[in-house]
Amino acid sequence: MADVATRAGVSRTLVSFVLDGKPGASEATKQRVLAAADELGYRPDSAARLLARGRSRTLGVLMDVRQLFEADLVAGIYPAAEELGYEVLLSANLPDREESVSVEALLSHRCGSLILLGPMSGTEYLHGLAGKVPVVVVGRRLDPAPGLATVRTDDVKGIREAVDYLVELGHRDIRHVDGGSDPGSPDRRRAYRAAMRRHGISEYAKVIPGAHTEEAGAEAARVMLADGDLPTAVLAGNDRCALGLLDVFTRAGVDIPGELSLIGYDDSRLSDNPRIDLTTVHQDAAALARHAVRLAIEMLEEREIGSPDVVLEPELVVRGTTAPPRQRSTSVVSK
Rank of each mutant, 00 (worst) to 15 (best):
D3F: 13
A5T: 10
R12M: 13
T13V: 14
L14R: 08
S16D: 10
S16M: 12
K22P: 00
K22S: 07
K22L: 15
A37M: 07
Y42T: 06
D45W: 06
A52G: 12
G54R: 11
R55A: 13
L59F: 04
M63V: 11
V65D: 09
L68V: 05
F69V: 02
A80Q: 14
E83D: 06
G85E: 06
Y86L: 12
L89E: 04
A92H: 03
L94Y: 08
E104K: 04
H109C: 02
C111T: 15
S113D: 02
S113I: 08
L114D: 01
L117R: 00
G118V: 02
S121F: 01
E124F: 04
G128K: 06
G131V: 01
V135R: 14
V137Q: 00
V138D: 11
G139S: 13
G139F: 10
R140M: 10
R141A: 14
P144C: 04
A145Y: 02
P146Y: 11
V151T: 03
V151K: 01
D155S: 13
V163Y: 07
D164P: 09
L166W: 03
V167K: 03
D173W: 12
D173P: 03
I174T: 05
D182S: 04
S185R: 06
D187I: 05
A191Y: 11
R193M: 05
R193A: 04
A194M: 03
M196A: 09
G200C: 00
E203V: 15
Y204V: 07
Y204A: 14
A205Q: 06
K206I: 06
I208R: 04
A216T: 06
M224H: 07
A226Q: 15
G228V: 12
L230K: 07
N238V: 03
C241L: 09
L246T: 00
D247C: 04
D247L: 14
D247M: 10
R251S: 11
R251V: 14
D255V: 14
I256Y: 05
D266H: 15
S268E: 07
S268C: 12
R275P: 01
D277C: 13
L278C: 12
V281T: 13
L288M: 13
R290V: 03
V293L: 09
R294F: 06
E298H: 13
R303D: 11
E304K: 09
I305N: 02
E313D: 15
L316H: 11
L316E: 12
V317A: 03
R328P: 05
R328T: 15
S329L: 08
T330H: 08
S331R: 13
